[in-house]
Amino acid sequence: MSTIQPTQLDGSPIVELPLSALLQPATDIAKAAGIDTVRQVGLYRKGDSHFFFEFENHVPQGELRALFPAMELEELLAEGWEYLAVELHLSVQKVTFGLRGKYFREPVPLEFNFTLTQGPSGYVKDQISITDLRIDETENTTFKDIMEIRLKSGDPKYAGSNDVYGALPIQRIVKILNRFVRDWTVSHRIIERH
C-alpha cells in the first residue's frame, strides 16, 4: 500500500480551518487511497457516536487518512439534535461538507440537509433543505442567503459581523446553522394553512 503525508495536517481532528485549506490534503488523501472520493461520516447521538469511512463502488487500494473536523458534541446535541451526521467527502481538488440530521424543539420536528462543496475557485454548491415533519413540507435555502439575513439594526442575524462567506472554518459554519435552525423552529411553531 502506498503511504502519504497530507500537506499541512497531521491526522488530528481539524480545528479552525476553512474548507479551502483542505483542498490539497484532500487531493493527497484521495490519490493515496486510490479511489475517487473518500467519504467520511461522523454520526452523533447522545451516548452513541461513531466515525465511518464509507465506500460505494470501489474499496481503497492504498492508505486512508482521516481528515475530519473536531466537533463540540455536548454543546451540539444540547441544541436539539436527535442525531446529527457530519460528512466530509474528500476528492481531488474538491471537498464536500455535509450536515444532516433530525432536530426537535417543541413543537417542531424537522429534518435538515446541508451540502457545501468547495472547489479551487470557491464554493461550487451550497444547498440547504429543511423539512417540517409535521406536514412533510420542505423549504430550500442556501448558506449564503442565511449569512445575508440582517436584523433591523443592519447587523447579520445569524453570522458574526466579521464572518466572510467562503472563508469560514467548519465549526463556525455549524454554529451559524445551529442558530438558524433554532430560530426556524420558533418561526414555524404555527402551521400556516395554504
Binding site: M1, G11, S12, F52, E54, A66, F68
Partner: peptide
C-alpha cells in the same frame, strides 16, 4: 444499496491500512 464501510468508535489519528474484502 451495496456499499462498504469501516466504523470506528472515534476518529483514528493514524493512517488506516486495512484490506477491505472485495
Amino acid at each position: 444499496k451495496a456499499r462498504s464501510f469501516i466504523r470506528f468508535s472515534k476518529i483514528p489519528t493514524i493512517p488506516v491500512e486495512f484490506p477491505i474484502p472485495e
